[in-house]
């Protein structure tokens, strides 16, 4: 029987988040951080955006998207602190990183629902 470990599941979420970030973030960041605020493209009207973002499918996707990205980010940053800065307080680092992702998840739930 395979031993039960948490790491494989966290790693799967990390990987899924990595793929989503790689594929979706560049265009989202380009549009909403530069193109619309800086007037390179006409910003979409509020009514349209509101309709798109309140559609159940969008809400469901965005929720999964944000959670996976947060886990991805937390997991990676955790190892960056271990290796890059050689922080030895491993439990505290893990708690801080995944705790941050949990707070982010609650925020996402509050905004989306």
């Amino acid at each position: 029987m395979t031993k039960r470990r948490l790491e494989p599941f966290v790693w799967l979420m990390f990987s899924a988040g990595g793929v989503l970030a790689a594929v979706f973030l560049p265009v989202l960041a380009f549009l909403f951080a530069f193109a619309f605020p800086l007037g390179w493209m006409t910003p979409p009207g509020h009514a349209h955006l509101s309709a798109v973002t309140s559609h159940p499918l969008t809400v469901l996707f965005l929720l999964g998207f944000f959670v996976l990205l947060l886990v991805h980010s937390a997991h990676r940053f955790r190892y960056t602190l271990y290796d890059g800065l050689q922080i030895k307080a491993r439990r505290a680092v893990a708690l801080l990183c995944y705790g941050g992702a949990a707070v982010g998840t609650v925020l996402a739930l509050a905004v989306l629902l």
Binding site: L25, A29, L69
Partner: peptide
């Protein structure tokens, strides 16, 4: 990545 998650939220 976390920054853009917050930004989009």
């Amino acid at each position: 990545v976390a920054w853009f998650v917050l930004y989009l939220l």
